[in-house]
């Protein structure tokens, strides 16, 4: 009853994922210490996720937090080489979960924390400076497209979780629960170019829409149109240019291009 390497590995993995016992006859002496693998799989993944979601942990408390993570690990076995990415589906999974979705502040907290984690160790890239913008000829501006630093990430939230998160990180009691927004608000997180610390702030609606468009490759002209929907048409270009300068000052931009030209 000798099994192939492929079959043994399938059976072994099914044991870890679903407690399937097909591998048992293939374990020498009945595999008395198989429990070391059984236990390690979920424990390791939950330990990693616990480090990534301190705010969520404080929101839920130990019992509910670990129950939730156990359900998540079962729903999303890892498909990546690094444990770094285990939590990438957690915000959406929480939002769409029949049980956890009843508490939308959970998905907001998870999205917020995941965004900060992405900003922390995203790849490095050379920034565009303010002087670069001054070199762009005026006639090129309408067709400009923008490339953003890998550390810049956004999250659109139903709750303001920032104060609660800061309390969790500091290990102090929060002043109160996360506060629901009347309408969703988009936050941005990025890494400070010199200090390498993670910065974050919320964006006004027009900036969030402009950034989203710019990240999708919409030209400066198109971004002005989006901004014009939120302000006086005459001021749209000024507002859009102001946003660009703010993005450059914050270290968000790594490329400015137009029709085959780069600055």
């Amino acid at each position: 009853m000798s099994a192939s390497l492929a079959d043994l590995q399938s059976m072994f993995q099914d044991r870890l994922l679903r407690a399937d016992d097909a591998i048992d006859p293939h374990l020498a002496n009945g595999g008395p210490f198989m429990k070391a693998y059984d236990h390690a799989y979920r424990a390791r993944l939950i330990e990693i996720l616990t480090e990534d979601f301190e705010g969520l942990h404080l929101l839920l408390g130990d019992e509910q937090f670990f129950k939730m993570l156990g359900e998540y690990v079962d729903a999303h076995p890892s498909t990546t080489r690094s444990v770094r990415w285990l939590g990438r589906y957690l915000p959406d999974w929480l939002k769409n979960s029949e049980n956890w979705g009843k508490h939308p502040e959970l998905a907001s907290m998870a999205a917020f924390e995941w965004m900060l984690g992405l900003a922390f160790d995203a790849a490095d890239a050379r920034l565009v400076g303010v002087e670069t913008m001054t070199r762009v000829p005026p006639e090129a501006w309408p067709m400009l497209t923008f490339t953003f630093h890998p550390s810049l990430h956004t999250a659109t939230l139903d709750f303001d979780v920032s104060a609660f998160y800061r309390a969790a990180k500091a290990g102090v009691d929060p002043d109160g629960p996360p506060i629901p927004y009347d309408a969703t608000v988009t936050w941005a997180a990025w890494r400070h170019p010199e200090d390498l610390i993670v910065m974050y702030r919320f964006m006004e609606k027009d900036e969030a829409m402009a950034l989203d468009a710019a990240q999708k490759g919409i030209t400066f002209d198109g971004i002005c149109e989006i901004v014009a929907g939120h302000t006086d048409a005459d001021e749209a270009a000024v507002r859009a240019a102001g946003l660009m300068k703010g993005w450059v000052d914050s270290g968000w931009l790594i490329g400015i291009d137009a029709e085959g030209m780069s600055w």
Partner: peptide, 9 residues
């Protein structure tokens, strides 16, 4: 791991 999954063990 197999079948595209990683058990991280």
């Amino acid at each position: 791991g197999v079948h595209g999954l990683n058990m991280h063990d």
